[in-house]
Design a binder for these strands. Structure first.
Length: 228
DNA sequence: GACCAGGCACATC
DNA sequence: GATGTGCATGGT
């Protein structure tokens, strides 16, 4: 039934890995940096996020205590290159307030616990949605949870692996059920999501997909599977 | 100059 | 519950 789906998703990874190699995500030296990056990269190119993070690093502000004490208006000036800097400054402050006041600035403490409990804990922070929460859990924590993003929906629906209008949780369920391997699943899911982003950035733009040179081209002509 | 980027919350119907 | 809108910089 979904054997074919499993096979295609495994093949998609293999083809992408062959092109890009292992991505060793998430980029970031500490789990705290991963969380900050997860908020800053919302609807934003990573190159812009890097500038913002470097601004914080150069001023020795990239730690829970410093950012907790930094006024939100000042924070906004540092993260300006990441775009949406006013709203993101508030979102970062919301996250850090919870982290600092309830978990002593300990990211591992914040991320510790049963998966849905931790997820709901993160989702209750204004400015953290499903993708941001799941990214923190998968990459900063050790949680087995699959990160879905705009590229995932686009690539999966174009290949018939999900429906165009499936919501976040539906696509996540498809991924978690059908993307398995016999080795280290945590590492596999981390790099699988990274590969999806690489494919999306390079070959699957909204208006102008580059299917001819996409490593997934061999999979494109297959008939649609997975209907409900 | 148009388009795009690793979303999210909120208003309105 | 579905749909629309504001948020903003920087690269192609």
């Amino acid at each position: 039934m979904s054997k074919r789906l499993k096979r295609e998703l495994a093949e998609a990874y293999r083809l992408s890995f062959e092109r890009f190699g292992h991505q060793h995500w998430w980029p970031g030296e500490t789990d705290f940096e991963v969380c900050v990056g997860a908020i800053l990269t919302q609807n934003t190119a990573w190159t812009n996020v890097e500038k913002a993070i470097n601004n914080l690093k150069q001023s020795n502000l990239l730690n829970p205590k410093s950012l907790y004490e930094l006024p939100v208006e000042t924070l906004a000036t540092f993260i300006r290159p990441a775009g949406y800097f006013n709203i993101k400054a508030r979102r970062l402050k919301n996250f850090i307030k919870t982290l600092y006041e309830q978990y002593h600035g300990d990211v591992q403490a914040l991320l510790r616990g049963e998966r849905m409990e931790v997820r709901n804990r993160l989702l209750s922070i204004n400015g953290i949605g499903k993708e941001t929460a799941d990214s923190m859990m998968l990459y900063a924590g050790q949680h087995l949870i699959f990160v879905v993003d705009a590229y995932t929906r686009r690539i999966f629906s174009r290949h018939g692996w999900c429906n165009e209008d499936d919501d976040y949780d539906e696509i996540q369920a498809i991924c978690e059920e059908n993307i398995r391997n016999s080795g280290n699943i945590l590492d596999y899911w981390r790099d699988y999501h990274a590969q999806i982003v690489m494919l999306g950035k390079n070959y699957c733009k909204n208006r102008n997909p580059q299917c001819e040179v996409c490593p997934l081209k061999p999979l494109l002509k297959t008939e649609k599977i997975l209907s409900s």
